[in-house]
């Protein structure tokens, strides 16, 4: 994947997280006695992928961007803030599943999905292209991100 741009690679990981999000809804929709347990398992896989993505951005991509541009309170600060909002919603969603309340889960998940997607739009159409333009040795960074995120992004 040495030739992938930061944008393409990270957008691919967004789609991977989307798939895992959909898997939770699918598990719940299936119904049956163990639907809730299956949804909890699926949700933990989703949450782990989200945390891995946030981690890769917060410890690798954003510092590289901040170093290259000198902007530490700019777009990356906003993105970090939104990561926090998504972490809160994921906690609330996990709590709803643990309490056996699929309706509450649906409400938290819907909110999370919209927040997550408008966050993704901003990253994919604004921030990642800026990263591709401004970070020197972007290819090496993509390789590093690939190691952190594993094969999920492909």
């Amino acid at each position: 994947m040495a030739t992938a741009s930061i944008r393409d690679f990270m957008a691919g990981d967004h789609r991977h997280c989307d798939d895992l999000f959909a898997a939770v809804e699918a598990a719940l929709a299936k119904g049956g006695a163990d639907a809730l347990t299956a949804a909890q398992v699926a949700f933990e896989a989703f949450r782990a992928a989200m945390e891995a993505h946030f981690g890769a951005e917060e410890t690798q991509l954003f510092p590289a961007f901040e170093q290259a541009t000198g902007m530490s309170s700019g777009p990356t600060a906003v993105m970090r803030g939104e990561h926090e909002q998504m972490r809160e919603l994921m906690s609330a969603a996990a709590a709803a599943l643990a309490a056996g309340e699929p309706d509450d889960y649906a409400g938290e998940a819907e909110t999370l999905l919209i927040l997550m997607q408008q966050h993704n739009v901003k990253e994919e159409s604004i921030l990642y292209p800026m990263c591709d333009r401004q970070i020197p040795a972007a290819a090496a960074l993509v390789a590093g991100l690939g190691k952190t995120l594993g094969g999920g992004a492909q």
Binding site: M71, G74, P75, V78, M79, K122, I126, L127
Partner: peptide, 10 residues
Amino acid sequence: MAVSLSLEQA
């Protein structure tokens, strides 16, 4: 830089 502000969003 317009973009840093624009991400302040809504």
